[in-house]
Amino acid sequence: MEWFIANWTFVAGLAATHLSVSVGPIVVGAFLAVVSARITPPRWVNPTRGVLGAIYAIPSLALFVTLPVLIGTDFTGPTNVVIALTIYVIASMYFSAHDSFTQVPRPTVTNAESMGMNSWQVFVHVELPMAVPGLIAGLRVAAASTISIASIGAVVGVRNLGYLFIDGFQRKIPEEIITGILAICVIALTLDVGLWLVGRLMTRWRFVRVDHA
């Protein structure tokens, strides 16, 4: 605690970098996962799951240093980390996003269609709202693990909260490492609660009590 009070501006700077490399991938990755989960033709779903499952299993440090070879970026620096985190978010959210869309009840969609909605209207006004609880659940998992994985970016020269682990280990200051762990936990849990709240506010109808006669 003393270490944190003495160095809080330093930690705040690292936390800002940490957020800047992880929020983008969470937003972009979630968008891409939802879009791809919705437009994958049924017979492509299982192969896609297989490939994404394999990608998700790749250790983050290995992915950080493989990307430069594939796309010609620098070995160190934030670009690879941002791209790799986006890939992880897509890979982890695709599964739950696809399930959320397939679990929308068929009769609901048929009702909407018979009321004259075109397929875009059905998607925006029926399928998307009905899928929100599942999508938010998947996003919460993806967001928490992204915040935690982002710290490994410190190994390839991104000065985020993971830097506290490397620096604290080399200088033998356990408080510094523990500060890093707690800071990451606080950010991840705040994001988690925030997303839960967003999900609740987006689906207010689920919490309206209806007293049937």
Binding site: V141, A144, S145, I147, S148, I149, S151, I152, G162, L164, F165, I166, G168, F169, K172, P174, I177, I178, G180, I181, I184, C185, A188, L189, D192
Partner: peptide, 19 residues
């Protein structure tokens, strides 16, 4: 289950080895 996702494995490893 939900708490462990938020804990960075790297930090846990470094902290335990140091302590």
């Amino acid at each position: 289950g939900s708490f462990s996702r938020a804990i960075p494995t790297m930090g846990l490893l470094f902290a335990l080895v140091l302590v």
